[in-house]
Nucleic acid binder design. Structure first.
Lengths: 239, 239
DNA sequence: GTAATAGTGTCTGTGAGACACTATAAA
DNA sequence: TTTATAGTGTCTCACAGACACTATTAC
């Protein structure tokens, strides 16, 4: 923050890029197919320019709604946080652009709306997405997002952002297994979740799966945000 | 990343703000006294505009050198990472500015140079700094930086960035105690550091303190970057 | 001598990993 | 009946916290 003449500052474009993650069978990410140059026809993260009248966080909120159509309790249950800022000189061939990346964890997969700028929008399984040709530096941003999500499940209760307003412990475990890409011991997982104060609250409801099995207790997210000591992946932290 | 007409993008100024931390008796932060409006005469984080020809990370590198005068092995031993991006609409009264904050951990306290934009520069004990009137949203940025530093000491070997190229385990413990603001059990601390593969490497050197005591073995930073399982603060994570 | 620091040993409790066992549902 | 899931119990090992003890230095 120097004493620059305000009228002679170097002008930048500022965008937000959204990494929207969801768990169905596995971890999935929302991508759009670009309709305009550069990278027309290439898959990319949804996002857009920050308007002069809104904060960066507000721009992220706005893009989340515009690109996913999330509303009501699904929007309220969605976790949104800043990931980091990417500002290589040549990351956008048009002009000097700085992109602030956000991570969103949504409980459901709303039908994405192909906006004015995108000719298509759909969810990709993470493994598939990471093998696509991806516009700009969005491949790197996605990798950072996945690692952030994996790390945060270790020491926070954020997994409930991916389950919806009520869930069984089996469903919660599937979220962990999908994000971490490894299986967990059911008994130990239960013990840890239930021993963590404020992670979940039990309800009187019970739910039965499609493929048999005893009816499971239904839980709600608790008020706790952190898990200490953490629930560690205890494997090599690879992408 | 939308299909905006590149020539009609909303222009932003982009700055980097540096939170440079060091440990002497306690945790200290480098501040400058602003020489120009806005906030002339107020203490602020060092930083400046990102140039059109450099990446954001390069701007942070440049500002670190310019503001601290760090060179050689001290610069090489300094840890630098992106903290987050702050972009409220009204954070700078001059114009729309987005600031990318960086955290730097330096082993020494070089005599800061009051640059063209600053009339003074000095190190403040963290407690004192947090009670000063601080320019822009820099107070919030400092708090985020301190929490990041505290958290990273838990699961990384970053503390060696605050000690210099060689150190005793007692000195390393003082770094932890200064950053965390709590005392640690000496024996347990030793056991954890030495049991963590790649945290430190012993040298043949020994060092004697100023106030008596047996000579201590001197260590070098090891190659390991992460500590798993982590060394937890095991207290409430407060600012 | 005393104070301060380094280095080591040990007891205990917590908690995670592994795994066994029972109960209840759908097919 | 088989298969799949929920819920519980238990053994063991790793490891952190607490704390005691000895050794070596400056003063």
């Amino acid at each position: 923050m120097t004493g620059y003449d305000p009228s002679s500052f170097p002008p930048f474009g500022v965008t937000v890029d959204m990494v929207v993650l969801s768990v169905t069978r596995g971890l999935e990410v929302l991508l759009i197919e670009r309709g305009a140059e550069p990278y027309a026809g290439t898959w990319a993260l949804p996002g857009g320019f920050v308007l002069p009248t809104e904060s960066i966080d507000a721009a992220a909120d706005r893009e989340l709604v515009e690109e996913t159509g999330l509303t009501g309790s699904d929007l309220a249950g969605t976790h949104l946080e800043q990931l980091g800022t990417f500002g290589s000189v040549d990351r956008d061939p048009r002009m000097r652009v700085v992109s602030v990346a956000y991570l969103a964890l949504t409980p459901i997969q709303p039908m994405p709306t192909a906006g004015t700028d995108a000719v298509a929008a759909r969810w990709f399984p993470m493994e598939e997405a990471l093998e696509l040709p991806i516009a700009f530096d969005h491949h790197e941003i996605i990798e950072v997002a996945v690692e952030r999500a994996r790390a945060k499940l270790e020491y926070t209760t954020l997994a409930t952002s991916l389950t919806g307003p009520d869930f069984t412990l089996g469903e919660l475990q599937l979220v962990y297994e999908a994000v971490w890409g490894r299986e967990l011991d059911r008994a130990n997982f239960r013990r840890k979740i239930l021993a963590t104060d404020g992670f979940v609250e039990i309800t009187s409801e019970r739910r039965t799966g499609r493929m048999g099995g005893a009816p499971a207790s239904v839980y709600r997210p608790g008020r706790g945000k952190v898990m200490s000591p953490p629930l560690l992946r205890s494997e090599l932290p690879s992408t």
